[in-house]
Nucleic acid binder design. Structure first.
Length: 178
DNA sequence: GAGAAGATCTCCT
DNA sequence: GGAGATCTTCTCA
């Protein structure tokens, strides 16, 4: 799923405003076999969405100030999610610049907490159904480019860093870290 | 109830 | 390359 989501479009609707970005970097997190995953030690209040239905948003708060967005991927009862680490803005860039207080497009969403700020994703969207919801969902790109996907180790974790479960579109300028 | 760590970002050197 | 910001969540007593 982490590979499948690359090249698709993250869509956020805020009233009349529409924000869109191509997903260019993801990371896979599993369950009891993945020490880096929030679900590693079983269900808790925070990670319960990871154990729920697939196709839902798992949004968590971290470092006292940041939100990160995941997509749940496994059947109910089985934990698993894909972290959206970076997107390439394609629509609503003026709005994103205001939210991020940044001038350059490259600074808007090249990191997991940057894109949630640009797209106004907060805990209010935790558990949101991405398959039926209108406020936040994932769409196909009308004219997808052929892209090569590369994998590397995940970022910002201690345990589980040996697993090459970070995926990105090769050469894309909006990937958080090369 | 206390203590520690965190799937990060920004600013500074 | 490194430290500070800042607070929720989890673990353990």
């Amino acid at each position: 799923m982490a590979r499948e989501l690359l090249g698709k479009v993250l869509v956020r609707r805020l009233g009349d405003t529409r924000l869109e970005g191509i997903i260019v970097e993801t990371e896979a997190y599993r369950g009891y076999d993945d020490a880096a995953s929030h679900a590693y030690r079983g269900p808790t209040r925070r990670n319960q969405v990871m154990f729920g239905e697939p196709g839902h948003a798992y949004v968590y708060f971290t470092y006292g100030m940041h939100y990160c967005l995941n997509v749940t991927t496994e059947p109910a009862g089985q934990p698993g999610a894909v972290l959206i680490r970076a997107v390439q803005p394609i629509k609503g860039i003026v709005e994103m610049k205001k939210r991020r207080r940044k001038e350059h497009v490259k600074d808007l969403s090249n990191g997991p907490a940057k894109l949630t700020q640009a797209f106004a994703v907060t805990k209010a969207l935790n558990g949101h159904d991405l398959t039926t919801g209108r406020e936040l969902y994932i769409a196909e790109l009308f004219h997808p480019e052929a892209a090569r996907i590369i994998s590397a180790s995940r970022i910002g974790i201690k345990a589980g860093s040996e697993k090459p479960w970070r995926f990105s579109i090769r050469g894309n300028a909006f990937v958080s870290k090369r």
